[in-house]
Design a protein around this nucleic acid. Structure first.
Lengths: 239, 239
DNA sequence: GAACCGGAAATTGCATGCAACGCTGCAAGA
DNA sequence: TCTTGCAGCGTTGCATGCAATTTCCGGTTC
């Protein structure tokens, strides 16, 4: 009687709500009414509650005891912290990858980077963004550490809307690809310290690019309205 | 009608179960029966379920859809990955702390380290372990990054049983304190690279110490009996 | 006009009940 | 003897109902 997947309703709900948040369909700060979500997805409140709890521990939504859940607000300060953390973790993964990637993994990384050159020239931000996700994912995997890799993937997902915006800035694609080139060269050569520094620089430049964007829009209709509204400075204090 | 705290039952349950796991009262691999836990804590199954889900995303328990939850098994490989991740994150925090701790924070770190000298000489592993938690927590806080700090605290909690065991090895307290000294000196001097290296080395030494312990015990009654009992070919197969 | 207060509506937290799934054990067949 | 089918039981997933708390709103007072 259940649906196609072997997943539970709770899991499917968590995935769908997470997707709605990441894609911007659910705006930051909007309330997540249990009953409304239950009716929206045709289930009862119980699986909705469990899904919200789960998303709460991953940082996507903020659950306030007895006061309901809201899509997590990301203040500029928190955004900066997320980017710093992301840069550090990615740089660490790059260093570990330079030390422990297998020859096959190195060849694949090199090939992926080469393929992205065309995409960068082509100028299709969406296609480049997809390849970019694969590129960074390859480096996470190359670190051979599931704990760090999972953390990096989680951070990347939370920052995805912001990252994507910057690819639409003209010229950013080419610069991103050039920065990748430095990282790849260091990893292929097994130069751990250089790989770390190059990746740290790359992600920091992404952050600068994003901050430039956000500062310029300032209350526009741009996807990630990261403003927190009056008196909210809310969370980040999650478990 | 509720208890003293403003927390919900779900939160208190999550905290209590997590504590039971971390302290070893609930052994790795043991089933977490919802009804049994509900009766044990005098609540219904609903908050138990929510608490288990929450602990599931934090990695302490493994929830298998429709097949119940068990205390997460930690295989030797996963333990190694956890320690590597921990070392890298702590080292990163130490580097950031060296760069951005305020003078007040530096003085407090120095004072805490000084106070630990007595504890190390005193030879009380439990007291030293408590102070050690505060010491590392001070460095996390000094990184001024809630994302990294939360992640580090979570990792520390998961590794707590293993970390504590090594403090009972004779001489480890003094060596630990000496290693801390190098870290503190680098942070106080603002030497970022040195702080990173010193912390990485410190945590790696802790890992070595733990691995020595586990290798030697091999089926003893030692706290973290990460073996799974007869007829289970000792784990290795968990997610 | 603003702050305060009390009651009603709305919403969350939790308990309970039912249906579906997974596991165990036994029996039948190869 | 080993495999396979199936029935019974236990457990999980989810729906529903109720109590408690929060929020909203109108009236009152300063």
């Amino acid at each position: 009687m259940d649906e196609r997947s072997g997943l539970t309703r709770t899991e499917r709900l968590a995935a769908e709500i997470a997707d709605a948040i990441v894609t911007g369909a659910l705006e930051p700060g909007s309330r997540l009414d249990e009953q409304a979500l239950a009716e929206r997805y045709g289930v009862s409140r119980t699986p909705v509650r469990e899904a919200l709890r789960q998303l709460g521990t991953s940082g996507l939504v903020e659950v306030r005891p007895r006061r309901g859940a809201v899509v997590a607000q990301v203040t500029p300060e928190q955004l900066a912290e997320l980017f710093v953390a992301m840069a550090e973790i990615e740089a660490t993964c790059a260093r570990l990858a330079a030390q422990s990637m297998s020859p096959l993994e190195r060849r694949r990384l090199d090939a992926l980077h080469d393929a992205m050159a065309d995409l960068a020239r082509g100028g299709d931000p969406a296609a480049y963004a997809r390849a970019n996700t694969a590129f960074h994912g390859t480096i996470y995997a190359g670190a051979h550490n599931a704990v760090l890799s999972d953390f990096a993937l989680g951070l990347r997902r939370r920052l995805q809307p912001y990252r994507e915006a910057q690819f639409r800035v003209s010229g950013r694609l080419a610069r991103s690809h050039a920065e990748h080139g430095v990282v790849v060269a260091a990893i292929l050569a097994g130069q751990a310290a250089e790989a770390h520094a190059a990746m740290l620089r790359h992600v920091t430049l992404v952050e600068n690019s994003v901050e430039g964007l956000l500062g310029r829009e300032a209350g526009e209709e741009g996807r990630p309205s990261h403003d927190a509204g009056p008196g909210s400075r809310s969370g980040m204090r999650n478990a």
